[in-house]
Nucleic acid binder design. Structure first.
Lengths: 232, 232
DNA sequence: TAGTGGTCTAGACCACCGG
DNA sequence: CGGTGGTCTAGACCACTAT
């Protein structure tokens, strides 16, 4: 029989529906790709493409020889884009502003070393800065940059360009970690962000490495009211 | 010349390196797939696979006829999995516990209607519950469930099974929204979560729809110390 | 070690959209 | 309307891993 030229999205949808209908419950094994291809009358590679998408979405798990199974522990999977802060402000319609608070070199404290998964203490650059939107505090960042992997940053004028932007544009990374949590504003943070001490602030920590060598770690404390939103 | 059987990962790496090296700067146009395939001596579909991955990673942008360009505004793209709370607790090695605080039906307040993008006010089920880890408060959830799309939840014994788990397992959704932010604990919340009023708490809001029809919206307030982490 | 998913190739046609 | 990415097919071989 001649395949009727179905798109992999249709195939994915048909498989997904069978999962949602309960025909295949969490943990159940699905037929092998070849059989599904025959059942659905398409090429095996089309089934493969559909399965890849379902797998990316966290709906199924695939294993060579083990076959394809419905994921036993369903998750809500979201994709999160963290842009350069300037772009983020501008995308929200704000006029971006930036102030360097302080910059100095020195050995990083133990806590930072640990965050970087760095064993031996190294000389690093610490940069404190404030991002503004329409002249109001938007985000405070407390950053440590490795002078081993980014020696060129010594020559960057950080009063004009944020370390955030320079690093994202010039320092590719192969691995990163993000942490989100809430923190109480102390007096200094409250002053910087234009709020009262004791306010609840949303914090984003980001650390990047290139091949296990740390590049930078930053604690970005957002002004009150900040929300991180992901849609689908 | 015979193609030397290169994997799409190699091809992706080679293209990525050319981008990182500055040969193609942000905004620049890359050669068409066919030319790259010839240049790299592989099939066009292999280049396509590599490009798809770079595109998924937010590194390039592709357009029919328009060609492939290096994304002008680089982003850090992370994938975030939000599991069922019980699974999350157990994965961290904790003993999961659950307490229903209150459940009642009634019209949802305007704020909830808005969050659900629901125009007309509807009768809904409100559920307040506490998730525990090793007997300690882990997360408080304040949930509203649509009785239009989930009438079966009336018959679920929510003192035994959390609405979180029941919904995730039985109510597939086609769209969702996540919000993260920080909030200050009031007296009641502090009491529930075993902390002091004024503490900074990390909040996750999740709303799900099935084809534009709202299913549920939940505000999950985590106990102090909670962090959301994503790795690569 | 055999079975299953993962990938590659070559060729064809389709769909979108910029010029 | 023509160029570029997107997809499908058919067939082959590879790589991982459960049994």
């Amino acid at each position: 029989m001649t395949p009727s030229r179905q798109s992999w999205r249709e195939i994915r949808e048909r498989i997904h529906e069978q999962i949602l209908s309960g025909r295949y419950a969490p943990g159940d094994k699905l037929p092998r790709d070849a059989d599904l291809a025959e059942e659905m009358d398409c090429a095996r590679s089309t089934v493969q493409r559909a399965m890849q998408d379902l797998s990316d979405a966290g709906i199924i798990e695939r294993r060579r020889k083990g076959g394809t199974r419905v994921r036993p522990d369903p998750v809500t999977r979201a994709v999160l884009d963290i842009p350069i802060t300037r772009h983020e402000v501008e995308a929200k319609g704000g006029q971006y502003g930036y102030q360097l608070i302080d910059q100095q070199t020195g050995p990083a404290p133990r806590q930072i070393q640990a965050r970087l998964e760095q064993v031996s203490p190294r000389e690093m650059l610490r940069v404190e800065a404030l991002h503004l939107s329409d002249g109001h505090p938007y985000m405070y960042e407390d950053r440590w940059v490795s002078l081993d992997t980014s020696p060129e940053i010594r020559d960057v004028d950080l009063t004009r360009q944020s370390a955030n932007e320079w690093l994202v544009l010039h320092k590719p990374y192969t691995r990163f970690e993000l942490r989100f949590y809430a923190e109480t504003a102390d007096a200094r943070l409250a002053d910087l962000l234009g709020t009262e001490a004791g306010a609840a602030l949303f914090v984003i920590e980001r650390t990047t490495w290139i091949e296990d060598a740390p590049i930078t770690t930053v604690k970005a404390v957002t002004a009150p009211g900040y929300q991180l939103i992901t849609r689908t």
